[in-house]
Design a protein around this nucleic acid. Structure first.
Lengths: 159, 159
DNA sequence: TTCTTTGCAAACAGTTTGCAGTGTT
DNA sequence: AACACTGCAAACTGTTTGCAAAGAA
């Protein structure tokens, strides 16, 4: 984990950006998380360590990190309004957001990657970002709703 | 086309909503489009027919239509901030938005549907909405950039 | 006549930005 | 010492809402 932070700071330095307390703190906060957080959540976590940090700096820093490729930057909420960020590490993640309890169900990216490849091959486009956002019910809510007869057991799909 | 509008008005009536000039106008505007439009664009088109219509009414009406299942309601821009709407008709559409010229490349939904099915089967979730959003370069921009050597010919993919 | 719907303007949420002061290099 | 970075507060964008007037049933 400190590895990641050192590498990130090296990258910052390499690009002529300064290593400030706020940037280091935000790297620590991000490195300690495995899921996406929104700017407010990241701000809360950082603010708990250093009460002087501002939300504006959180936004500016997250955008800087995103430009440098240090963090992924996505919109995964049911209403895709709020940006969410996480350290760019490991394979891409996609989510189904449960509209009943808010849980996020992690989705492996194989199929989406296959989709991106087909696009490239068949349409002649280039893909920069691919994002799949699902809403629905998480396994627990699905089971609960089915038991109470509020959801048909033949799982419905959109369309 | 008038079919669609009649059906929509019947549905409104059936749910106890009133058929107003604004609602009919917005149905006409929507029925005349095959692609997603944002609220502002829809407002412009409607306003050209009836200068008294307001943006607030456009938003309220689009939300009502979405609740009734008359229109699809999505976030497909590179920054998924702005909502877009289109008449719910025919198969689901997904897009790649070109970050260079803004073009939207239409994507068939087969693979995304397959992805949704796998989710249901493997994770025990229920899917309500599925949305795939890609950014990249459209075929024209891809070709142009590749000819000027600004993009490698082995098309890059995210990750 | 009743109760929904509308237009207007103000509110709202999330994000960005101008500025003067602070801190890294 | 130079200049990037920060906090603050104000601006901005897209969307929603309270209210009084207008309109559909």
């Amino acid at each position: 984990m400190p590895h990641l932070i050192d590498d990130a700071e090296a990258l910052l330095h390499e690009h002529g950006f300064k290593i400030t307390g706020q940037r280091t703190l935000l790297l620590q906060v991000l490195a300690g998380q495995s899921t996406y957080l929104d700017a407010e959540e990241i701000y809360e976590l950082a603010h708990a360590q250093d009460t002087s940090i501002s939300l504006a700096t959180v936004y500016r820093t997250l955008n800087l990190f995103a430009d440098l490729g240090l963090v992924d930057h996505r919109y995964i909420e049911p209403e895709h309004r709020r940006e969410v960020f996480r350290m760019s590490e490991g394979p891409e993640q996609h989510y189904l957001t449960c509209v009943r309890c808010g849980a996020r169900v992690l989705i492996h990216a194989n199929l989406l990657n296959r989709m991106a490849h087909e696009l490239v091959r068949r349409k002649g486009v280039s893909v920069i970002t691919a994002c799949a956002c699902f809403t629905g019910y998480c396994p627990d809510c699905t089971a609960e709703l089915q038991q109470t007869g509020k959801l048909p057991t033949g799982n419905s799909l959109p369309g």
